[in-house]
């Protein structure tokens, strides 16, 4: 699908600052790092979770566990989606029991993926608390889901999309507002 970049919402320097602020907020809200863990949602949520964990380690000196979650098998739209989703890796190698889990995703939109992630996490264990951290909240929620930590609030229209780019898989760190051209 072709798209046209309408605006660069966050550039590389801004990206780093946002991660730093989110890490501070997470530590503050949780009064430290005790029993704290990150779970990143495939794909870019995973890299965001890893970056947040590194930043928290820089600030507090403690290394926190980072898990990887794929929500494909819990989605409500996989049989109506245009393209069948590939099942990706889920790897949570620590016990979720009684943990304060920070679920990390790049863009919060309808809230359906987060709903799927919550169901998946509950099947994997029983965390004490789950908080939601997102880099961008673009609005248009379809479910009663509210993030605890937000990098950037971006009001969007339906035919716009927010693309998060990260050096781990893309050529740069950036958040782009794009317009999708319907084929």
């Amino acid at each position: 699908m072709d798209y046209k970049v309408k605006a660069v919402l966050v550039d590389s320097a801004g990206f780093a600052r946002t991660i730093t602020r989110l890490a501070h907020e997470i530590i503050e809200r949780n009064r430290g790092t005790e029993r704290l863990a990150f779970v990143g949602m495939q794909t870019r949520g995973v890299y965001l979770a890893q970056r947040l964990a590194r930043k928290v380690e820089e600030i507090e000196g403690t290394a926190l566990p980072v898990g990887v979650l794929d929500t494909t098998m819990y989605r409500d739209d996989f049989r109506t989606a245009l393209k069948q989703p590939l099942v990706r890796v889920t790897e949570i190698s620590f016990d979720l029991y009684n943990m304060n889990v920070v679920l990390v995703d790049d863009v919060l939109y309808t809230g359906r993926t987060v709903r799927a992630a919550l169901d998946a996490l509950m099947d994997l264990g029983r965390p004490k608390r789950i908080q939601l951290a997102v880099l961008v909240d673009r609005g248009h929620r379809e479910l009663p889901i509210k993030p605890d930590f937000v990098g950037r609030n971006v009001p969007t229209s339906i035919n716009e999309e927010v693309r998060v780019r990260m050096t781990e898989i893309d050529s740069e760190d950036a958040v782009l507002l794009v317009e999708v051209q319907q084929p």
Partner: peptide, 9 residues
Amino acid sequence: ERPVPKVPT
């Protein structure tokens, strides 16, 4: 290998 080895897919 999960504690609940079942998904709603």
